[in-house]
Design a protein around this nucleic acid. Sequence first.
DNA 1: CTGGTCATGTAACCAGTTACATGATTAC
DNA 2: GTAATCATGTAACTGGTTACATGACCAG
Lengths: 172, 172
Amino acid sequence: MQTQGKAEKSLTELEGSTLAIIKKDGPCTPYHVRDVFKCSPSDIWSGSAGAVYPLIKRLCKNGILKSKSDSVGKRKRTLLSLTRTGERALKGWLLDIESGAEIGLDPMRSRLHSSTLYTKKELRSYVKKTMQHMMNSIPAPKSKDPRVAEIHQVWLSHRRAAVEEVLEIILR
Amino acid sequence: MQTQGKAEKSLTELEGSTLAIIKKDGPCTPYHVRDVFKCSPSDIWSGSAGAVYPLIKRLCKNGILKSKSDSVGKRKRTLLSLTRTGERALKGWLLDIESGAEIGLDPMRSRLHSSTLYTKKELRSYVKKTMQHMMNSIPAPKSKDPRVAEIHQVWLSHRRAAVEEVLEIILR
DNA sequence: CTGGTCATGTAACCAGTTACATGATTAC
DNA sequence: GTAATCATGTAACTGGTTACATGACCAG
């Protein structure tokens, strides 16, 4: 039983992330939101125009976001911010236990669950190369907050540790 | 430059996982493939009929899978196996470094990148509850191989460790 | 004056979702 | 006999993708 009038179905990951970006980076343009997704370390969200603009239009229509026109010189733009409903929805997303507990998608995990399809040699070499590639080429999300980069590195290290421990189990 | 005649675009995660299932579990039905996805620890793939049957039809048409009719009593079914092309495609997927290095989607990671939107108390409590929920209620993929359950537990523990270390950084 | 960035959007397409529909077989 | 499971599929919908298109502004 919600106290809400409307059905208030909970936000998707893309919607929640979008609201979080807009909340953090103040009134900002859809272009900026796209940019954040484009520079994110995961390639799950391409941040394509065809995804972001319609999404934002939808959120505005649902009263989650409000937009206001602005211009810098002759160049026009739209500044987005959260409505009160939007703030509530974001809070709900941030504190959603079921969703947060979800293990999501990890391509290496999928592959290791099929470890019987590799030879041991193959697997060892594959894991080594892949983890090397990850450490060298997955970019941190760009942020003014210096901790974001640090946190990113911690994530990568833990992922590597997990993969290597699983590899041990498989090979032992 | 491929030695292939056909374009051979690489498999998606769902396609690769599907081939891996069929390869591991011998000639099997689409129904079985669905079942594996339905019981997987991640809810990324629902294993809905509307996803699996068309996917398999597609893979058959592309010469990746071959199907053969079978019946148990009056009940008809289709048994799937990989073609030679399919074996090659699967190998390619299993050994794809770029894809394996991808960090994919992790709902908790997304949220922790927006840690400034929580109060410290809120965040501590959220993480604790969420990790508890994960350890208690994310099912291991069902498999005859006993290591699969063990590996699953290792993954969960590492994920918790990662989340907790990141939390330390945020709160310090 | 050219290339990069800021800025917004659309169109065709694709792959997944939920919900529906059917029917045989097996276990209680 | 009835509920669960095995088995296959479709239809309407949703929400992403790539590719295309336009235009202002700024730095060299």
